[in-house]
Design a protein around this nucleic acid. Structure first.
Length: 446
RNA sequence: GGUCCCAUCGUCUAAUGGUUAGGACAUCAGGUUUUCAUCCUGGAAAUCGGGGUUCGACUCCCCGUGGGAUCACCA
């Protein structure tokens, strides 16, 4: 339907702080919309405020988007385009749409530039919100430049959107009140009006607006260090305020590009629910190969590797067990910190009272463990999860699973919670297993 | 406060006049060979209130109420 005009979107952040998830989502929507329509996605760094803008924040934004693989087709920096804006300020004055007003706050000798407001009603159709009408009278003759050489926000936005031939402005809903002002300038300059789509805001998990005080909401790039996968963050963010219209919860970036539909964007804001992010992240973690998962947890293994008992071969075997307990990197960090993995590598400490299954007598448990020991001792051939289970199962069922399996599991792990005993046996092997069981037997004999 | 926007389970959302109001996260219960985790099954859980319009409203209109955004020589 819109064959002659190319779709061009842009994201225009000001680099005054670390790039946050709201920015990521705005970038994502702009990117998806552009790519869906074979269009172009532009990033424009709005760094005209020298005081507040910092290069490191711009870098942080670019790194974040690079990590997430949200690629832009063009990049601009407003601070490098000041000459262009000057021309347009002059043009506006010349055409009578702007004028020099009272003295500047910073420069008592130089006047600010105000836009001559025609005081009309501005109507526009928002692609998400529908028809919106503003009476611009209350805006007054607003300032568009600190002085003839230094434009501010509304002017630069309009000039750039016009010059860059932006077809669709998708931005956060906090900008909706800026729209009439920008339309006024745009029409004074004779640019084509882009289509507007104001995206609902991401809200705090506790309701209300997102705040730096929300502990789960951190700068977007920091989620990388937490072990959130880029696909997971994208999948999570796109579902705040958008959905494909069916029951899918997991959706790839390629599918998103193919199916992104601006009409399905929500009108109201949505809360940031970290639990769902973790759930999605776990889903993507499960799709990693064992080797990739090992690399994934590698950064938090550094201290653990230095322990004298550490054995990388055992660690490799532990990967599936660690994975099913992992939503993100902090889970692995905690596992290590709590010593939950130590018993796979060395003989655990045992508490005599915990060896006994619910109400079992010491002598009874002792004889069960001795029997288990002898069964395993006489197990020839492969010693793994399957063979040990086959060897012990009949006995365990006869005696009572709890009375056999609990003491065994506890003797091997020294923990209230751990994987099942056969899994542990398979990992630590016959020799270590027999040692651990003997160790427990000796404690019971005392 | 002015202006603007919004309103389905606790949360993210589906249902664009006719459904037992669906799914997912979280939660609860049961199961998957003892414990934890994973996995499976099942349960509880919502149309903000009041008026209309209509044979029939989650859906359309109005009024309340609630929430949000914005009111800079920041962006």
């Amino acid at each position: 339907m819109n064959l002659e005009k190319k779709i061009i979107t842009r994201m225009a952040p000001s680099p005054t702080g670390k790039f946050h998830i709201g920015g990521v989502r705005t970038a994502l929507f702009n990117y998806l919309f552009a790519k869906h329509n074979n269009g172009k996605f532009i990033i424009r760094s709005e760094d005209t405020d020298e005081w507040r803008s910092e290069k490191r924040f711009e870098d942080n934004m670019l790194h974040t988007l690079e990590w997430l693989n949200i690629k832009h087709d063009e990049f601009f920096r407003q601070s490098e385009r000041m000459d262009i804006y000057k021309d347009y300020i002059k043009k506006l004055i010349k055409s009578g749409n702007a004028y020099e007003a009272e003295a500047s706050k910073n420069n008592p000798n130089i006047p600010v530039i105000r836009f001559k407001n025609p005081n009309i009603k501005i109507k526009f159709t928002d692609l998400i919100l529908g028809d919106i009408e503003f009476d611009t009278t209350e805006l007054g003759d607003f300032v568009i430049a600190r002085d003839i050489n230094t434009p501010i926000y509304h002017l630069t936005v309009v000039v750039d959107d016009g010059l860059m031939e932006i077809s669709h402005v998708l931005r956060g809903q906090e900008h909706i009140n800026n729209t009439p002002r920008q339309i006024l300038i745009l029409e004074a300059l004779g640019f084509d009006r882009p289509k507007y789509a104001h995206i609902p805001l991401i809200m705090s998990p506790r309701g209300g607006k997102l705040s730096k005080r929300d502990p789960e909401v951190i700068p977007a790039f920091d989620y990388k260090e937490q072990g959130i996968l880029p696909e997971a963050l994208i999948n999570f963010l796109v579902f705040i305020g958008w959905n494909p219209g069916d029951d899918r919860e997991i959706i790839s970036i390629d599918e998103l590009i193919k199916e992104f539909d601006i009409n399905k964007i929500q009108k109201g804001g949505g809360a940031f629910n970290i639990e769902k992010l973790y759930w999605i992240n776990k889903h993507y973690l499960n799709e990693l190969s064992n080797n990739d998962f090992y690399n994934y947890i590698s950064p938090v293994l550094n201290d653990f590797r230095k322990k004298d008992f550490y054995d990388d071969k055992i660690m490799q075997n532990l990967i599936p067990l660690i994975r099913e307990r992992t939503r993100y990197l902090l889970d692995v960090e905690n596992m290590i910190k709590e010593g939950e993995l130590d018993f796979y590598f060395k003989q655990p400490e045992l508490d005599i009272n915990k060896i006994l299954w619910k109400g079992d007598k010491k002598e009874y448990t002792l004889s069960n463990l001795e029997k288990v020991h002898s069964i395993l001792l006489n197990l020839n051939g492969d010693f793994n999860k399957k063979t040990t289970k086959e060897a012990l199962w009949v006995y365990a069922e006869k005696i009572g699973k709890g009375s056999v399996l609990w003491p065994l599991r506890y003797s091997l792990s020294g923990r209230d919670k751990s994987p099942d005993p056969f899994t542990i046996l398979g990992i630590i092997g016959k020799e270590s297993a027999l040692n651990s069981i003997s160790f427990a037997i000796n404690i019971l004999k005392k």
